[in-house]
Amino acid sequence: MSALAVKTLSKSFGGLRVTTNVNLSVEPGERRLIIGPNGAGKTTLFNLITGELAPDSGAVLLFDRNITRTASRKRAHLGMARTYQIITLFPRDTILHNAMLALLGLSTLRWNPFTRLSRQQHLMARARAALGRVGLEHMAGRPLAETSYGEKRRVEIAMALAQEPRVLLLDEPFAGLSIDERRDVRELLKSIPRDVTVIMIEHDMDTALDLVDRITLLHFGEVIVEGTRAEVVADPRTREVYLGE
């Protein structure tokens, strides 16, 4: 059984095919890197997997369950969490509130209009714990707008982890980070327990190479090469795509 399987997935916008017959199978606990140059269709593939886009054909399976027609919000409840390439958080609220929104999303408490959110001690403790995992517990009360870019990225990962996903999709987690911040995020990703399957998009191969088990190379919406790190790096087609030979 694979944690996430994608079967002959295709999507076009107008006449432009952005995802062409993509097959993907990620084992439970695996770390998978999806690379490819700009416009390779990496983020589109993520959007198809999370259901924010509907595919023209093909299927998405989460632990053998066909979720192709499942609403994207329900996929979160089935154990799928994601981060975005462009940080999408709640800038007016505190870091703690951001983390609480992530937890609340999976709790039936989210429909409750009568109780005070700030009185939910249990939820708040879990949110603090989630922030603790990314080393931000000490600044939980700070408004998000007053944090650095690297801290925002960590908040985003904390929110995804707080939902205790079975499959975690990270869209360019290193984009825009300084060297120090990259090191922090790298350590953070390494610390994710193996019961979480991680699929990561990176534009640049070297950044995340040592974090992953297998690599899928995407080019013009198609899977060009797939294999272990060594296999993909050594494959001539990889050089072709990246060096334009």
Partner: peptide
Amino acid sequence: DQPRRMNALGYH
């Protein structure tokens, strides 16, 4: 503030 993110977090 972030309807898309809220959807991804599991909200209707």
